[in-house]
Amino acid sequence: MSLALSVRTVRKQFGGLVAVNNVSFDVHDGELFGLIGPNGSGKTTMLNMISGALKPTSGEIMLGHDRISGLAAHHIARKGVARTFQLVKVLPSLDAEENVMAGAVFGHQRLWGEEARSLARQLLERVGLGGREHMPVSAMTYIDQKRIELARALASNPRVLLLDEWLAGLNPSELQIGIELIAELRAEGRTIIMVEHVMDAIRTLCDRCVVMSSGVKIAEGGVAETLSDPEVVRAYLGDDDA
């Protein structure tokens, strides 16, 4: 398997606070990779550095053979990294189809016109929103807005897809649907990095994972052994999510 994304001794410092402390890991093509840890452990900061929302203080991030750390977010998006946001971010004045087209038009593949439109329709169908192309997204439910975001990210046909707590805030039946959807994406061969708190989802979905705590990597490897690592258990102890 070839490397899809590689994070090399990446560090992020905000003033005196070290949010991410020299973390390294590799993600292979077609892998579903989990990035987990208690609240405030630096997972989202890590994701923000991969997507270019933040620039690392030191270290580098490679997408395939290209260095992407230090590039602006839109350059990274065009090179093939797409993401969803922790607090869902849809474009309220556009309809569902146009929301998804945004990813198709400006992202990795830069389609335009009918091509972008038909891809958007296809993806809306794919995430379960077929027939609602022209519904205003502000009138949609939370899970449907999350679906829009996912379809928008997929529309750029990314080399790496970042899901930032995409399953958070869903009720049990919605959660089931969400997990199935991600499982299907993996089956299609997508490379996905997910930051997640929902442990069930991590266990069912991920191939490998990295556990972070207070900005450092404390464990890495297959999901089952990593989650039973004593240090990981200690890091989570007392945390409601474990």
Partner: peptide, 22 residues
């Protein structure tokens, strides 16, 4: 494309950057 980009920027600049708009 420029017009579509401006619509997206007007909605949410963070999203705009992350879908690849300069």
């Amino acid at each position: 494309r420029l017009g579509f980009a401006m619509q997206i920027i007007g909605n949410d600049e963070t999203v705009a950057r992350h879908v690849g708009i300069d």
